[in-house]
Design a protein around this nucleic acid. Structure first.
Length: 314
DNA sequence: GGTAGACCTGGACGC
DNA sequence: GCGTCCAGGTCTACC
């Protein structure tokens, strides 16, 4: 039975008061592991995230709604995570950080049904062992939309490069360390010229998709709150996502997983290859076969697929 | 609804 | 070093 862990605010040590104005302990629904969330997919390799597996420290350059750019340092804690920042923040800024980190790491997600399934499936034993299940998200759905578009029709190295260029060229710098920057805001990207966006970041044809996305977010014709407030059923949410230029079936399914809807599969060429090897003796297959392979896990099939331990990943 | 071709970049490969 | 081919999803036009 899940027991809600009380939120604890630890007063900063006098020794660190100057450097660590924010020091929060945020509780997580067990089972939870920061390292498992951090490496749940490649997002930790995309700026403005960094992750050090040796110290299990996740960092993120965050641009708050007040316009301030700060560094969040997130480390494990028996109750959940500890969030520190060297900046002296207003109470509303601290509240925003609490909300953002809770969303980013899925600290409040109830995955108990998924863990019950995982305990019964040999190919999900790593989920049980590592207390995995949450998928790392960015602080805003806009950032996740852009990053997902950057994963399409390119290699992972290309995604890293395009995202880094975007952050370096259009993100606000961290005061005192202009090398490190926050993710660009919709306003900045909407205000940029498409050709400048294309040439400076090497986004190719994706530049027009991201520019158009930034514009509809900026002028509020695309309501991002609708994506995260839980009011839409999955089918409607999928249609809403598919209406965004640059978001196709794969990208929509990927975003649905990030949004906590686990009844869809992000089927890319890699998935077709792995499912073909696993269940179809290497014969060519299509998305229907991949869906059929995971059908028996019902509304959790997306998460089962995400954490499935393939026999041969190479 | 299904299909073919274009989109764009970087890496691999052959010369 | 240069040219060619290929991989990676989505969009658009066409049937």
């Amino acid at each position: 039975m899940y027991r809600k862990v009380p939120r604890v605010r630890i007063p900063p040590s006098p020794l660190f008061v100057f450097f660590m104005a924010v020091h929060l302990t945020l509780p997580a629904r067990p089972p939870f592991s920061l390292s498992a969330v951090a490496v749940s997919h490649g997002w930790h390799q995309l700026a403005p995230f960094t992750y050090d597996p040796d110290t299990q420290t996740l960092t993120y350059i965050d641009r708050l709604t007040t316009g301030r750019v700060i560094e969040l340092i997130i480390t494990p804690d028996p109750a959940g995570v500890i969030v520190t920042s060297t900046d002296d923040l207003k109470p509303e800024e601290t509240q925003q950080i609490e909300k953002q980190v809770t969303w980013m790491l899925g600290l409040d997600l109830d995955l108990s049904e998924f863990h019950t399934l995982a305990r019964q499936e040999t190919r999900l034993q790593r989920v049980v062992k590592d207390a995995a299940g949450q998928i790392l998200r960015s602080t805003t759905i806009f950032e996740d939309l852009v990053k997902t578009i950057l994963t399409t029709n390119t290699t992972w190295a290309g995604t890293i490069r395009m995202n880094r260029n975007l952050v370096n060229q259009f993100g606000d710098p961290l005061p005192g360390d202009s090398i490190r920057r926050a993710f660009p805001t919709p306003a900045v990207l909407a205000g940029a010229d498409v050709e400048t966006l294309r040439s400076k970041t090497k986004l190719g044809y994706r530049a027009s998709y991201i520019h158009a996305l930034a514009q509809v977010v900026e002028d509020s014709s695309l309501d991002l709150n609708l994506l995260i407030d839980g009011s839409l059923p999955t089918d409607e949410l999928r249609r809403y996502l598919l209406a965004i230029k640059g978001i196709g079936p794969y990208a929509a399914a990927n975003l649905l997983l990030l949004l906590g809807r686990y009844d869809d599969l992000p089927i890319d060429s890699w998935a077709l290859k792995m499912v073909s090897r696993e269940w179809f003796a290497g014969e060519p297959i299509g998305p229907a076969e991949v869906n059929a392979a995971f059908e028996r896990w019902g509304t959790w099939r997306g998460l089962v697929y995400w954490f499935w331990e393939w026999e041969n990943r190479s």
